[in-house]
Nucleic acid binder design. Structure first.
Lengths: 163, 163
DNA sequence: CAATATTCGTTCGGGCCCGAATTATCGGCT
DNA sequence: AGCCGATAATTCGGGCCCGAACGAATATTG
């Protein structure tokens, strides 16, 4: 939310609108920056690495999860990727149509659907993931190395706080 | 991406798939957790605070930005909120239809559109924002207080890294 | 002052996103 | 065996999301 204006400018405006109501500005700063950071990183990676393969962020995450855990059930992909099964169904259809993965009903339990990468899907990930990680590197390089593990830990704390 | 499996399990799987290729797992952990955290916090706030007013996250951000800066141009809202003008156009139409804000062409520059809250929009934010901030508080409470400013700073570093 | 370039908001097309309803299957219980 | 509650995945409806293309208005340049 704190975009072209500084956080102080925003805070001053908020104070003037709410007339001294008690608010936690540090909490505001954390959630606000959390979203701006996530969106900024996502858009950056989509443009620099994913665009050339015409993949969205979510499609890439799905491919990555399947690549690591195949064969994996639909519910597992959704849990691992952090989106709903409804969302996943559509993305799977897209990726299946492009020939990157396959759906197959489980013989052991007729309710389950098992997902696997095709050879083309594996080739794509083998090429794409190192590039993706290199760019992740470039982005996080701006954080002091000693702070990196703490950054990951703080983010994990936030995840746990919503459970 | 690191969902029900631990990061170590995931890392082991990645190593076995890539056969010793050099990867930066700390960078992976940061971006992965960044997204899981952002989505978790967003979904949590949408369910606990925003759902009762039938507002999406983005709609709330738009109302918040307009509330603080009105009158504000369309391009300003998009920059401040961190989404594209194309996205904003649709959200503005939704919120205008619900009577929370108004669009008005600028007299000084015929290309600009100025956005203002309606009284109903201001009433909504005056009620909703303190509840929203309280929940932000509950979430960030799990971070050691002394780490809060550093958390915000690390996130700002990530934002800057993509510019 | 007219031709040109830039800036702004919107629209369009395709894809993601979720909750709720739906269909199919499984497991337990009688 | 037959029912019944639980569980899986999909579909559906409405909304968000972006880049590209568009048209209107302004700014710039010769």
């Amino acid at each position: 939310m704190a975009g072209q204006h500084t956080l102080n400018e925003t805070e001053n405006e908020v104070v003037s609108r709410l007339g001294g109501l008690h608010l936690d500005y540090e909490a505001m700063a954390v959630t606000s920056n959390l979203f701006r950071a996530a969106n900024a990183v996502r858009n950056h990676l989509e443009r620099t690495v994913l665009a050339k393969s015409d993949l969205t962020w979510t499609a890439f995450v799905v491919l990555w999860v399947v690549w690591i855990w195949e064969p994996i059930e639909t519910r597992g992909i959704a849990a691992e990727g952090g989106f709903s099964k409804a969302t996943l169904s559509g993305v799977l259809t897209t990726l299946e149509g492009r020939g990157f993965l396959t759906r197959e009903r489980s013989a052991a339990d007729g309710r389950l659907v098992l997902v696997n990468l095709t050879p083309a899907g594996r080739r794509l990930m083998k090429k794409l993931f190192p590039e993706f990680n290199q760019e992740e590197c470039n982005i996080t390089r701006h954080i002091t190395t000693s702070d990196l593990p703490q950054a990951a830990q703080i983010l994990r704390d936030l995840i746990r706080a919503t459970e």
